[in-house]
């Protein structure tokens, strides 16, 4: 179970960590707890997978690469086989099963703009299923924050 301090930590840690020599001490000060407690709570939250990852969020596009949301309509009896083939590509960063005929939705992150088409082509060859591509045209908000 999460207590009030855990929730305050989760809310704060979804915002940017400062680029200072002791960034956790800075945040612990703001939260009014000792640095060691912040670190041990973070370790526990990560260990319990309440936090799936802690670190920099990279933007592949700003590195000269690209991101693309993709979708496939995978027959139920082939789902696990196709999933193994799709997930084997390191370019596939996130993948979700969803309630639709297009039932597999994944984000590709590649180091070059051409990487999207190359990876999509490879997945189509390996699975025999079309990979629909939905690159972002406009981004309206990048919040991600979830109130804990």
């Amino acid at each position: 179970m999460l207590d009030t301090t855990d929730r305050a930590i989760l809310n704060r840690m979804q915002d940017d960590l400062p680029l200072t020599t002791h960034p956790f001490a800075d945040i612990a000060d703001d939260l009014g707890i000792p640095e060691a407690e912040l670190l041990s709570r973070l370790a526990r939250l990560k260990n319990d997978r309440v936090i799936t990852r802690f670190g920099p969020f990279f933007d592949a596009a700003a590195m000269g690469g690209a991101f693309c949301l993709c979708a496939m309509a995978v027959p139920a009896d082939k789902f696990e086989t196709v999933l193994t083939k799709v997930n084997a590509h390191p370019e596939v960063a996130h993948n979700y099963e969803r309630t639709h005929r297009l039932n597999m939705w994944f984000v590709m992150a590649t180091e070059t703009p051409q990487g999207i088409a190359i990876t999509a082509d490879a997945i189509e060859r390996e699975t025999g299923i079309e990979v629909l591509q939905f690159p972002k045209l406009q981004e309206f908000f990048i919040g991600f924050r979830v109130a804990a």
Partner: peptide, 25 residues
């Protein structure tokens, strides 16, 4: 730290933060 600050200003790093698990919350 200088390199990281430059990557942030260019947008290569969006932020340094926790990714919460929605399900666990």
């Amino acid at each position: 730290l200088v390199r990281l600050a430059k990557m942030k200003s260019r947008g290569v790093i969006r932020r340094i933060a926790a990714a919460p698990n929605h399900y666990k919350l």
